[in-house]
């Protein structure tokens, strides 16, 4: 466990190169969070501009319902507004905290609304959807990162991939997965641990630290 932590989304982001400049453009996530704790709503909006799409994409994938996903994302950012002081940068990046919260709230919702949870296959849960939006630099990076994640997932044996995706994108508990896959609970737990370790290894080096001489210092980086 000596591997340096992958840092996701801690560098400055450009959502749209043609977008209007704001006083928050040069601030990193930590600085924005600090401003949010002081009651700066513009800082919250800047964080939303950076991560709203990722949060909504994740919530949509888990909930498979636009309205519930919108509720979840709205609630996540209002939680940031209320509880930004709880973010501890020594424990990880802001985007990790934010996406964990988004996942948690989406899973909460999908468990409350059982009708949302139709059984989907692993492939369906990971399927690519064309989405509207400008193909700006940020999207190029996102595409690279998605490809890298997909490659890492491909290295997992199917049972491990199935266990992880049913839990992460399907919101199923370990016991529910055991029932769905007709597998002993202990085996599901073992598969999840092994799958997570393998996935972590496959994503080694995936980071977004911008080197000083980079022509696009605002863009996250991926080692491919």
């Amino acid at each position: 466990m000596t591997t340096p932590k992958a840092r996701v989304g801690q560098s400055r982001h450009v959502v749209d190169p043609n977008a209007r400049a704001t006083p928050y453009d040069g601030l990193d996530d930590r600085a924005l969070v600090a401003r949010v704790t002081e009651g700066d709503g513009g800082a919250l909006e800047a964080l939303y501009a950076r991560y709203g799409r990722a949060c909504y994409g994740l919530a949509r994938r888990i909930l498979a319902d636009e309205q519930f996903a919108q509720d979840a994302v709205q609630e996540v950012f209002l939680t940031v507004w209320r509880d930004a002081h709880r973010f501890d940068s020594t424990r990880g990046g802001f985007s990790t905290w934010l996406l964990s919260m988004t996942h948690h709230k989406a899973v909460d919702a999908v468990r409350r609304e059982e009708n949302l949870r139709k059984r989907r296959t692993t492939a369906e849960m990971l399927e690519e959807r064309e989405v509207d939006g400008p193909k700006v630099h940020d999207e190029v990076w996102s595409t690279l990162r998605r490809e890298r994640v997909r490659e890492a997932l491909k290295t997992l044996p199917d049972p491990q991939k199935e266990a992880l995706t049913l839990a992460y994108f399907g919101g199923y508990t370990q016991r529910e997965i055991a029932g769905l896959t007709n597998t002993p609970l202990g085996t599901v737990k073992t598969r999840m641990l092994a799958g997570m370790r393998r996935l972590k290894g496959g994503l080694e080096g995936l980071h977004d630290t911008a080197p000083d001489d980079d022509p696009y210092p605002d863009q996250p980086k991926v080692a491919l």
Partner: peptide, 11 residues
């Protein structure tokens, strides 16, 4: 968090 980025982001 990386896995979350494995799905397409959406506005």
């Amino acid at each position: 968090a990386h896995l979350a980025y494995g799905v397409a982001s959406e506005a």
